[in-house]
Each structure stands twice: as C-alpha cells, then as structure tokens.
Design a protein around this nucleic acid. Structure first.
Length: 422
RNA sequence: GGAGGGAUGCCAGAGCGGUCGAAUGGGACGGUCUCGAAAACCGUUGUCUGCCUUCCGGUGGACCGAGGGUUCGAAUCCCUCUCCCUCCGCCA
C-alpha cells in the first residue's frame, strides 16, 4: 500500500512512476486526495466537538459535587446534543476512511527508477548468464520421463490422492527432495539467516499483510470453516512475524529463512506449462526474507541476488538472471530479479527464484517499523526463493542424464550419500 | 469438548465511573559523583492522528486484547468475540 502522504506531496511523480507499470487509472489518486481533504475536515470538527464534550463533562462532575444539580442537568442536555453531532461525524469518517483505504489498495507499488517500462515478459532485461548448457543427445528425455524411469515421482498416484498437480515423490526422488531442502537451508543459515518453521495455514490479516488479500484470493487455497488460507509461499508467515512491531535500529537487518510447502491454485494454466514439474499446485520451496533499514534495501537486494546466484552455481546448473520490466512486475514489487535455469531436454528456461524489494509497500500494511531518533519509520521488506524445488529438480534430472544414470552435483553427494541416481 | 481464572505502557504490577495516558517497582537511556566503573541520587522513557509551525516544538483527539452498549463522563459497569492460564476429558 502506498502512503497517502506520498500522494499529497508528490502526486505527479507518483503518476509518472505508475505509468512504468502501465497503470493509468490516475483518477483514483484525485479521488483519494479529495476524500482525504474531506476526511481531515471532518476530523477537525469531530475532535473539536469531543474537546467541548470532555470539558463540559468535567464541569458536570464539579457541579454535581457542588450540589448545583440544575446547572448540571442543563449542561447534560447540551452535551447530549453534541453527542449526536459527534456520532454523525464519526459515521461519516468511518465511511470515508474505508473508501480511501479501498482506493489506496488498488494502487500498485511504485517501480524503482531503474525499471524499464517494457510491454511484456519479452522486454525483461537479462542481467547475466552463467553455467554451461549441456549438449544432450537427440534421445534425451524430459524430466517427467526420467522421473518415471527411475521411479522418482509418481504423477498418477498424486492425481488419484488429490488431483492433478500434486506429485508424489518416492524412493530416490523423495530423498533428493529432502536433500535439497536440507542443503538450501544449511546454505542460508550459514549466510546468517535465522531458520524458521512457520504455520502453513494463515489467517486473513496475515494474508492481507503481504498483499495476497484482497484480490488474489483466487490464487490461494482456502479453509473457509476456520477463515484460514494455505500459504502460497513462506514469505507470508515469515514477513508477518514482525507485523505490528517496532524494532530497534540495532535489530536490523532481520534475516529469516524457512522451508515450507507452497500451495497455489494456478487457475487458468494449461498445456506444456503444466507438464511434469513445470507447474504444480503443491511444491516445496526454501525462502529468504529480510527486513532492513530503508537506506540499505537495494544493497540488501543485490546481496540476496548474489546469495541465490551462489546457490544455483553450486548446483552446477546453467542459469540467467533477469530484471523484470514494468509490464511483467508484480503489483507489490518495486524491483524484481528472476532467476531461471535451463532445462536442457525441454530446451526452455524455467523460473526458479524471484527476488524482490517491496520497500514499504508491505510494511505499511503490516506496520513494521523501527525507531530512528525520536521517530518511527517503516522498514523495507525483501524476499526471494532460495530455491523453488520442482524446477530445480527438473533441470537437475534433464541436464545430468547419462546412460548410467543421473549424475548429481558434488554439493549434494553428502546429503544423499551417493553421486548418482540409477 | 467440560469447569474456572485472566488480558493495562519495554517487563512486572496497581487502578472507589469524574484532570488516569494511567501509581509503584524493574529495565533502558541521559546527567551528577568517579581516574574509570559500581552503588547512590536527579531526570527522561509509548503509539496513531487533526490543526498551527521552516525546524525545534505547540495545541487538540484517540488508544488500558477486539467490537458493541449504558452514562453528561468508562481502563473501571453490561454484552459479544478473540487469545492466554489452571483443572478434567480426548489425542499425534
């Protein structure tokens, strides 16, 4: 959510920034400012009446003590009249505040100055590329075939148990999944992230805090009986840990990591996008989240990018880092880098991580602040995947297939107790 | 699931319906003292928000788990909800 103060003070600049995200409903801003004007006027009137009432009530107490009942009764009558006006103003205020809030929620986060406008994902900027794309023989198999051949994943049983997009990992497949989780977490903890294991169900307020609600309910699985949502990413519970918190400056940066399953409805997806592990409804992911001083957030973003890059490099996968253009960025992000690995049998790049700076867009909603001198300020929130497992697994299987089995990257050997799957 | 008890500031813990944003203690911070430190003493110690002000600040309003109600006036009385604790039952 954008701060209304920003709209008041830098309206033109805000509109210019929003245009990078192709957001053109700038009349919303005028509406907000108009309502805000009205709101502040009502607050002034309301508070003044309340001041009068507080004073009069005190005097009534004095009068009664002094035995001047008639005077007290007269004043009571007066206050009762004020009360009616106060109630009316309060109702109007509540309404206008709700309207403002509802409109504010429709404004996306402002993109960073460096974000190119672009028109589609094709205009994203490749920052750099690394690793070696393997030359596979013509008969190379996509990961879903390899998963079947080595009995690593059973997609059909998952469909039977739940529905499509809920793969069942087994044998070396289940072990590899566990090994990757363990390795990713160890890697993050070593870099100073504090490990968490949060709830997988969250309440409405938590889903609101990180921006899943309103509007994106359709992407989450819901448990309506209890008012809960299954988390689409560990970002949701992790960031909300500090909701309604004022941190001291020396607590920053807060660095958190967690493994969780992630649940996404992915309504509207189809075709080769959803084949095998390319897009599933339940998947495993290790996430990193940082809460930082606003002056340091872009430095933190770069640090997170190289952190994730190091992880992918250690897996010996060909990758590229992409800076998203305004047209492809999420509603909540100010700057996002996507990581893609090359899946050699499918011959396509798969997104395995998305690292973003949200600046104060989330923390304003969550009221995550820190103390600076006499004042409190909002911290900046950032997060990234390190990493999403299914596509990593897909690329590992496809890129490392050999006649004698799947050769695993060295870093995983100790976690699996073997160098290859056969 | 059943029966009780509770929710107050960074923490602990008071609070007859009328200057209570809130006693007291602890902690933290600043100062005095000291070569320095401890102790002692003094002081400071919330958030949100309207208006005024260039800043410092000034001046109103709101907030004692959340939401309603009673009243001229609610931290204090009533109702609903949420959460926590104790006991019983059930249970991975």
């Amino acid at each position: 959510m954008l701060a209304i103060q920003l709209l008041r003070e830098k309206k033109d600049w805000v509109i210019e920034r929003l245009s990078v995200k192709h957001f053109t409903q700038t009349q919303l801003i005028d509406q907000i400012l108009e309502l805000d004007e009205q709101r502040r006027q009502w607050i002034t009137e309301h508070d003044q009446l309340q001041n009068q009432r507080n004073t009069a009530s005190r005097e009534i107490g004095q009068l009664i003590k002094a035995g001047k009942q008639p005077e007290a009764d007269a004043k009571k009558k007066q206050v009762t009249e004020w009360n009616e006006a106060i109630d009316k103003l309060k109702k109007q205020l509540d309404e206008v505040e709700q309207q403002i809030q509802q409109l504010l929620l429709q404004l996306p986060n402002l993109p960073h100055e460096s974000v190119p406008t672009g028109h589609s994902a094709a205009d994203n900027v490749i920052i750099r590329q690394g690793g070696q794309i393997p030359q596979l023989p013509a008969q190379a198999k996509p990961h879903w075939e390899l998963a079947g051949q080595y009995q690593l994943i059973d997609f059909e049983i998952g469909t039977k148990l739940t529905g499509s997009g809920f793969p069942v990992y087994k044998h070396q497949g289940a072990r590899l999944e566990r090994a990757l989780i363990q390795y990713f977490l160890d890697y993050n903890v070593q870099a100073g992230y504090v490990e968490y294991w949060p709830p997988l169900l969250v309440n409405e307020q938590t889903a609101f805090g990180t921006g899943q609600l309103p509007d994106k309910e359709g992407q989450m699985y819901a448990v309506p009986n209890d008012g809960f949502y299954l988390i689409p990413t560990a970002e949701v519970p992790l960031t909300n840990i500090f909701r309604d918190t004022i941190l001291s400056a020396d607590q920053l940066p807060v660095k958190m990591t967690a493994y969780t399953p992630c649940f996404r409805r992915e309504a509207g997806s189809y075709g080769k996008d959803v084949r095998g592990l390319n897009r599933v409804h339940q998947f495993d992911k290790v996430e990193i989240v940082q809460l930082v001083h606003p002056d340091n957030s872009y430095q933190a973003l770069e640090e997170m990018v190289s952190h994730v890059e190091g992880l992918i490099q250690s897996l010996e996968l060909p990758y590229r880092i992409v800076k998203l253009c305004g047209a492809d960025m999420s509603f909540t992000s100010a700057l996002t880098y996507d990581f893609e690995v090359f899946s050699a049998a499918q011959q396509r790049w798969l997104e395995v991580s998305s690292v973003s700076n949200f600046e104060t867009f989330q923390t304003l909603r969550m009221k995550i602040r820190f103390r600076e001198g006499k004042h409190t300020k909002l911290v900046h929130s950032l997060n990234g995947s390190s990493l999403a497992l299914p596509r990593i697994l897909a690329a590992l299987l496809e890129n490392n297939q050999h006649p004698d089995g799947i050769h695993l990257p060295k870093v995983l050997h100790p976690y699996l107790g073997t160098a290859k799957i056969s």
